[in-house]
């Protein structure tokens, strides 16, 4: 293949990767930024989103588009409710103790993963894309649905940004993130804010799962890879920084796409891990964070 089409394909793949990463990593980053909780179970919320999307597609009759739209609504709501309950039932009870939250979210990871295995079974579940059209270039074909996921991801991120910047809820979240004690003194219901943030974080992952499942397949073990990549993005972008996370997702997604098309996907993973190590050594606050200010 010539260089130009090769670059085009690599760029497209990177863009799709970046947009899904942006959603999962933003959820993780939001939870860490506001709550200081490292949510190891984040990938499982993504997996649940995908499985719920499969269930909607399989049990709602009619064209695939109906099941897809239902999944896009049901999955985040159900996963958000679950995350809300998990925050109330577990994280709140242990007082958001940093070590405790890591251990308990590892526990959640196993409970969710094995719960999915018991409920949905061990098989990979294929989901029909809401529409099926292959864009033909002279050199290769490309799924139009993949480009659609990029557009939806950008819309959702814009929505999250508006929520954080322009709404009262966003103001409360930012206040809590900035200084928990002062927020409490001003009468902000920090407990509720925490639960809401944990739920929104999980919902971002769930939506990413819904978007990705027509490209891949829903499977109870699918949460691991996105979790690792999200951690990479969040560390590179600066923990808790939304613009940093977005920039890092694009950087990691595109470099992953380019490297894995031109060389090998394994090399792409090595490079992104190396980047994390370098960032942790030389700029532990993240590549895109201005010192002393977050989000």
């Amino acid at each position: 293949m010539d260089l130009a089409p090769y670059l085009l394909l690599a760029g497209l793949e990177g863009l799709v990767q970046a947009s899904v990463l942006m959603l999962t990593a933003l959820g993780l980053s939001l939870v860490f930024g506001v709550m200081r909780v490292v949510n190891v179970a984040h990938g499982e919320f993504y997996m649940l989103g995908a499985l719920i999307a499969w269930a909607c597609g399989a049990y709602i009759p009619g064209p695939p588009v109906l099941g897809f739209v239902a999944g896009l609504l049901v999955a985040p709501l159900a996963v958000g409710a679950l995350a809300w309950a998990a925050d109330r039932a577990v994280l709140q009870k242990i007082g958001y103790n940093p070590e405790g939250t890591i251990v308990s979210t590892i526990g959640m990871l196993y409970i969710l993963q094995q719960g999915a295995l018991l409920t949905f079974g061990p098989d990979a579940r294929a989901v029909d894309a809401p529409f099926y059209y292959t864009i033909r270039t002279p050199w290769f074909g490309y799924s139009s649905y993949k480009l659609f996921t990029v557009a939806v991801a950008i819309l959702l991120v814009a929505g999250l940004w508006l929520l954080m910047r322009k709404s009262k809820v966003g103001l409360l979240m930012r206040a809590t993130q900035f200084d928990r004690e002062t927020a409490l003194n001003f009468g902000i219901p920090v407990g509720k804010v925490y639960s809401a943030v944990f739920a929104i974080g999980a919902m971002m992952a769930a939506v990413a799962g819904v978007l990705v499942v027509p490209n891949q397949q829903a499977h109870y073990l699918m949460g691991t890879d996105p979790l690792l990549l999200s951690f990479v993005v969040v560390i590179v972008g600066g923990l808790g920084s939304i613009p940093g996370t977005i920039a890092a997702a694009v950087l990691i997604g595109l470099s992953d796409g380019l490297l894995s098309v031109f060389f090998s996907p394994t090399l792409a993973k090595i490079v992104s891990t190396l980047l994390v190590a370098l960032v942790l050594i030389f700029r532990p606050e993240g590549l895109f964070t201005v010192k002393g200010r977050r989000a």
Binding site: M1, L9, E13, N215, G257, P265, T266
Partner: peptide, 17 residues
């Protein structure tokens, strides 16, 4: 291709014409 891989498009350009 690793058996746990979930996305394959990125491997396809390596098929020579």
């Amino acid at each position: 291709i690793p058996p746990t891989e979930t996305s394959f498009t990125r491997y396809m350009p390596r098929i020579p014409f």
